[in-house]
């Protein structure tokens, strides 16, 4: 058939494209990660990788295992629902190795972060003008951070 002879170059072109497509499919099969599509259109293994990232905040449950006395003090006062690391910072390293000194937070900057008076804060939230209220005396001179109400020699409410 002359049509095949005269259109032969088109079949050659088709052959080149077919070879290209097959090469693509082979490469694709080789390079797409195995877990791709496990749960959806993404690499399923990525979920476990993200879940395995290191912790920096240990969580108050962990702190309370050792520091149950502080937890009891705290539970009795206004800071009952303020978790340890809200003030002490991330301490997973200390939890993993208690010999690492967690250090003490600086009350000069710590307390006013929450308690400096501002009209933007909810009215019911305890706020003070620190200068006027204490005149430079550190907050923990009068207030015990773990139970801040001043009653019966810095004890519970």
């Amino acid at each position: 058939m002359s049509i095949f002879r005269d259109a032969g170059h088109l079949f050659r072109l088709a052959g080149v494209y077919l070879a290209g497509t097959l090469t693509f499919l082979v490469i694709r099969a080789a390079v797409v990660p195995h877990s791709f599509g496990q749960y959806g259109h993404y690499r399923g293994a990525a979920i476990a990788e993200i879940a395995a990232k290191p912790l920096h905040y240990a969580g108050h449950q962990t702190c309370e295992i050792c520091h149950s006395d502080i937890a009891r003090t705290k539970a009795a006062g206004m800071h009952a629902h303020v978790n340890c690391e809200a003030c002490h910072g991330p301490l997973a390293k200390h939890a993993a190795d208690p010999s690492i000194d967690p250090g003490k937070p600086d009350v000069a900057t710590l307390c006013v972060r929450c308690h400096a008076a501002s009209a933007a804060r909810p009215k019911s939230f305890p706020q003070v003008d620190a200068e006027q209220h204490a005149g430079g005396v550190p907050c923990n001179t009068c207030h015990q951070p773990h139970n801040p109400a001043i009653a019966a020699a810095g004890g519970s409410k």
């Binding site: 005269d6 050659r12 072109l13």
Partner: peptide
């Protein structure tokens, strides 16, 4: 580029 075909007949 010819892909090995040099057929340039009128019909082609």
């Amino acid at each position: 580029l010819t892909l090995g075909s040099s057929n340039v007949s009128e019909r082609a």
